[in-house]
Nucleic acid binder design. Structure first.
Length: 467
DNA sequence: AGCACCTCGAAGACAGTAGT
DNA sequence: ACTACTGTCTTCGAGGTGCT
């Protein structure tokens, strides 16, 4: 408090003399020379928290004891302002001090050291400004550096208080009204109403409400365009995010955790797939389908029409080998591989053998480049997946396994195929489901001796509609 | 799943504020 | 005094949450 009171002991005359003319004052407080600045650089407050803290030197704590006494002084009528907190109750960080603020803090300390009374805020401010403006860049450097550090501190604290929006996340599209306002501001440039931005916004809102649908239409159309662009960008963003995290989007993740965990080791794939050929699996299948549509929507160029593409489409897709085509699935596979040792402890020798076999199968089919999930054949007639999955309940398990393991790139493909007996059953079921058409030999992605036969041709002619 | 409700962010430029 | 940051104000829609 004593410190505070000194603020009120005013002696402008003494001040100006002391600051500018006396010999001793000149050293510390007169012209701010690089040497003087340098000399006192150690006293330059390192953070706002230390500001005015007197001997408080190194404290980095968030309590601003020093400040408080000062605040009490000129903020005596500044009642206890409720500290601002975010919705999680995290207090808002103190703002970063600027180089100039650091300078004033340092300057005040120097005044105190010199034993001269500190002028009241108005005079002090003028004095500081005069000094500050007379300083060159070099003189200011220590203060600037301190400010930069504090700015970093502020950024860090702010990131906790109010996490920055993802810079890569596409900005939301402007609404029709926003687009209108852009024009409106141009129109009103130079003739803004009294009340500034707020008044202009009100005026804009009023104008907008009075506009006819016809007048609004261009903005609505533009809004729709922007929305489309936004959706495309968001799709891209989500895909990239999923790729980076190796997992699904937050929404998908939520769906996954609510249901079965897609791609988690030891889920239903090995034994459960046949057993869980139920609602969950169908959901899972749809989800995979959606992912597939979203994740690797084939471009016209790469899609079905070319013979090569057709080849890839066929049972090929097939294949565990196609899995690496999708980043997230690839990662899922990697995860599985990493976790295999644990799983293997519980696997029988034959299961392990099958797993190895599958792995080699997978390797043999790695000729499909990344991000190139084979395209679907063109749609002519329709066959819904739900038909396949739900109308043949007795066969569903097999069909599902086949589907997930191959066409749809289910991340558990390896497990599905690794489950020797289950794989055989899958093929058998699949063949039954497509009875009459199964000719030729089983494709390479099916375990040797899995039984049954398979023909890409017999598989393909029935086109799918993904409903 | 679908609905209602709520929050936030989109643009603009300047006034106000924090900090001594 | 200076600097950097926030709030202002509008409408609309996206997206999240909670409930049925």
């Amino acid at each position: 408090m004593a410190d505070s009171r000194t603020f009120f002991i005013i002696s402008v005359q003494v001040m100006s003399c002391g600051l500018t003319n006396t010999a001793t004052g000149q050293h510390h407080l007169g012209q701010v020379t690089p040497s003087a600045t340098h000399m006192s650089y150690t006293n330059v407050p390192t953070t706002t928290s230390n500001a005015g803290g007197g001997g408080g030197g190194g404290g980095t704590g968030g309590h601003h004891g020093g400040n408080q006494s000062i605040t009490t002084h000129h903020g005596s009528n500044k009642k206890h302002k409720k500290p601002k907190v975010n919705k999680d109750g995290i207090p808002a960080p103190k703002r970063a001090t600027t180089a100039y603020i650091n300078f004033t803090q340092w300057y005040r300390e120097e005044l105190k050291k010199s034993g001269r009374p500190i002028p009241k805020i108005g005079e002090f401010g003028k004095e500081c400004a005069g000094k500050w403006n007379s300083m060159n860049e070099e003189d200011k450097t220590p203060f600037i550096n301190t400010a930069m550090k504090d700015r970093e501190r502020y950024k860090k604290e702010m990131a906790v208080y109010k996490p920055a929006r993802d810079a890569n996340k596409p900005k939301r599209p402007g609404t029709a009204f926003m687009l209108f306002m852009a024009d409106f501001r141009k129109e009103m440039a130079g003739k803004e109403p009294e009340g500034g931005v707020a008044a202009l916004a009100k005026l804009g809102g009023e104008r907008w409400r009075n506009m006819s649908e016809e007048e609004k239409r261009p903005y609505v159309e533009k809004q729709n365009e922007e929305k489309l662009r936004y959706e495309v960008n968001m799709e891209d963003y989500r895909r990239k995010s999923a790729g980076m995290t190796g997992g699904p989007s937050p929404k998908q993740a939520r769906l996954s955790t609510e249901g079965s965990e897609v791609g988690s080791p030891g889920d239903s794939a090995d034994s459960g797939c046949a057993n869980n050929a139920d609602h969950n699996q169908e959901q899972d299948g749809h989800q995979v389908l959606r992912n597939r549509q979203n994740v690797s929507t084939p471009s016209p160029a790469t899609s079905s029409s070319s013979p090569q593409a057709q080849q890839n489409v066929s049972p090929g897709p097939l294949t565990a080998g196609s899995l690496p085509g999708q980043p997230s699935h690839q990662q899922a596979n990697q995860t599985q591989q990493q976790q295999q040792p644990q799983q293997q402890q519980q696997q029988t020798a034959s299961q392990q053998q099958n797993a190895q076999q599958t792995q080699s199968i997978s390797n043999n089919n790695n000729n499909i480049p990344n991000n190139s999930m084979p395209s679907l054949p063109p749609l002519s007639t329709t066959m819904s997946l739900s038909h396949a999955l739900s109308n043949h309940t007795s066969l569903m398990a097999g069909y599902s396994q086949h589907s997930f393991a191959s066409n749809f790139g289910h991340p558990n493909a390896a497990n599905v195929l690794a489950a020797g007996a289950a794989a055989a059953a899958a093929v058998a079921n699949y063949n039954q489901a497509h009875s009459g058409n199964m000719t030729g030999s089983a494709p390479s992605y099916l375990p040797t001796g899995a039984g049954g036969s398979y023909s890409a041709q017999s598989h393909l002619p029935g086109h799918y509609s993904w409903n």
